[in-house]
Design a protein around this nucleic acid. Structure first.
Length: 473
DNA sequence: CCTGGAGTTGTCCTA
DNA sequence: TTAGGACAACTCCAG
């Protein structure tokens, strides 16, 4: 073996192309050991959700075979990264460690500890920030404060100029001899004990190749109608890139540079969504308690209901509101929910049931394949009205009119709530309004085949408005 | 420091 | 049927 040896410490950057660490090592003509360290505590209170574990397993598998195709391999370990990095480095004589930064408070603490441990024994660490367009902390208002409103934030980002350059990685990665103590992927125990992942397998192909396919499909079939189409949950105008982005199988810059070739309203509108992702990550960096503490203080004492039955009905898609139930079942079966529907089910949990937004965030965390602490926390705070760019308190989604507006024929509802498949479109979003004979013809008995609404929306809406009014006083 | 416009994604009632 | 305005007041942010 000749030349310097470096470790690429993989985290949420499970790709090969446009990988700053790999590119840097190869530029220096060195050997590289790609290393993934499974650390159950890296995210503190937010240990990996079930769907995320499933995804991670397959993503690591894909990364591993991709590296093998380039003459390298993925070394797997578990434990505290600060100890594992030093241990592995000393075994293979590595003097440099490359890694990509994360913005979650617990993950940042882990990387800070690892950097200190490496420094103590003379190992150099090199951090990159390629999960985002801009390093958190570098986008500030005129006063030097972090932005709390999206539009001026994104305007500033565009002014600064989004960097479209991507790093190229050679087709052969020279590797050092393999340390003896690597783990098999199965030893990480990421796969579920009971196989509930059928729906996920049917829907997704985790890994960087699947990410590239999703991007190509989006560019050729969907981006041109993204602006209008993104609101229709029964159709396929969204990118499906969110889990790939979360695991870093594709970088925002790769996406941005592809979008630049396309141009048009759809492209800039999608880039703006990447802007929201950017915004939430910067927010979590500046407000590390975003996951637990409302950005708007007056919500700290809001009297949320401890409604276990309501929460359960919401989770399993048995609220009696077809669009809400369709969304929750899509989530359960595929690990993903259309964004328009996320807002609707979120609004229903928080405003109709008056259940704490954190209960919703926890459920999403466990069930979403794209579960991302920054996006999830910001999204739930937004829908609860206690976050950045808060929704006005009176904005309470009506699950019936939202259905009539964005799922006019009820295609989405029929797909995910099959017991309502025969209900005519006119009643599909409010089956309790259908005359008896219509329900009979459709083969539906409310209360046994499908629940009556667990709460009356008009009543619940007023109750929420009153509660908000009172908590303010 | 002051001023003024604006704030992802809504709903409901009225004319 | 449809378009427009009310719905709190507040905070953020640029000038």
């Amino acid at each position: 073996m000749s030349g310097p040896v470096a470790i690429v410490w993989y985290r949420r950057d499970l790709r090969i192309e446009d990988h700053a660490g790999l590119a840097a090592v190869c530029d220096h003509g060195g050997h590289v050991l790609p290393l993934y360290i499974h650390d159950e505590r890296e995210m503190g209170d937010w240990s990996l959700g079930s769907a995320s574990r499933w995804w991670l397993h397959h993503s690591l598998q894909a990364l591993s075979s991709g590296l093998e195709a380039r003459g390298s391999y993925l070394h797997l370990r578990r434990g505290d990264p600060s100890e594992v990095l030093v241990d592995v480095a000393q075994r293979i004589g590595a003097t440099n460690v490359y890694f990509e930064r994360r913005c979650e408070p617990a993950a940042r603490a882990v990387e800070a500890k690892a950097e200190r441990a490496c420094a103590r024994v003379g190992i150099e660490t090199h951090a990159s920030n390629d999960a985002l367009f801009f390093e958190p902390g570098t986008i500030a208002t005129g006063q030097g404060n972090p932005y709390q409103v999206f539009t001026p934030f994104w305007k500033r980002c565009l002014q600064e100029g989004v960097d479209y350059s991507t790093a190229s990685v050679p087709s052969v990665l020279p590797s050092p001899s393999e340390p003896a103590d690597g783990l098999a992927l199965s030893a990480l125990s990421l796969m579920p004990k009971v196989d509930w992942a059928t729906g996920l397998r049917a829907e997704w192909r985790p890994g960087y190749a699947g990410a590239q396919d999703a991007l190509q499909r989006f560019l050729s079939e969907s981006v041109h109608r993204y602006s209008e189409g993104r609101d229709l949950p029964a159709e396929r105008w969204t990118s499906g890139l969110s889990p790939h982005l979360h695991f870093g199988e594709i970088s925002p810059r790769q996406i941005a540079s592809a979008l630049r070739e396309v141009r048009g309203e759809g492209a800039s509108s999608f880039l703006r969504e990447l802007g929201w992702r950017e915004f939430s990550h910067h927010l979590l960096y500046h407000f590390p308690h975003l996951d637990q503490h409302p950005l708007r203080d007056q919500f700290a004492s809001f009297p949320w209901c401890e409604d276990r039955d309501g929460l359960r009905a919401w989770q399993i898609g048995q609220t009696g509101y077809p669009l809400v139930d369709a969304g929750m079942r899509q989530l359960w079966q595929t690990g993903w929910m259309h964004n328009r529907v996320r807002m609707i089910v979120g609004s229903f949990l928080v405003k109709d049931l008056l259940i704490d937004w954190r209960r919703g965030a926890e459920w999403f965390w466990d069930t979403l394949v794209d579960a991302d602490l920054a996006n999830n926390s910001m999204g739930w705070q937004w829908v609860a009205g206690c976050g950045a760019d808060a929704a006005p308190f009176f904005r309470i989604f009506n699950p019936i009119s939202q259905g009539e507006k964005f799922d006019q024929e009820g295609t989405y509802v029929r797909r995910w709530v099959p017991e309502l498949a025969q209900v005519p479109s006119r009643y599909i979003h409010a089956p309790w309004r259908a005359p008896d004979h219509v329900l009979r013809t459709a083969g539906v008995t409310l209360g046994s085949d499908y629940p009556e609404p667990i709460v009356d929306h008009a009543f619940a809406r007023q109750r929420a408005l009153d509660a908000l009014q009172k908590s303010k006083a």
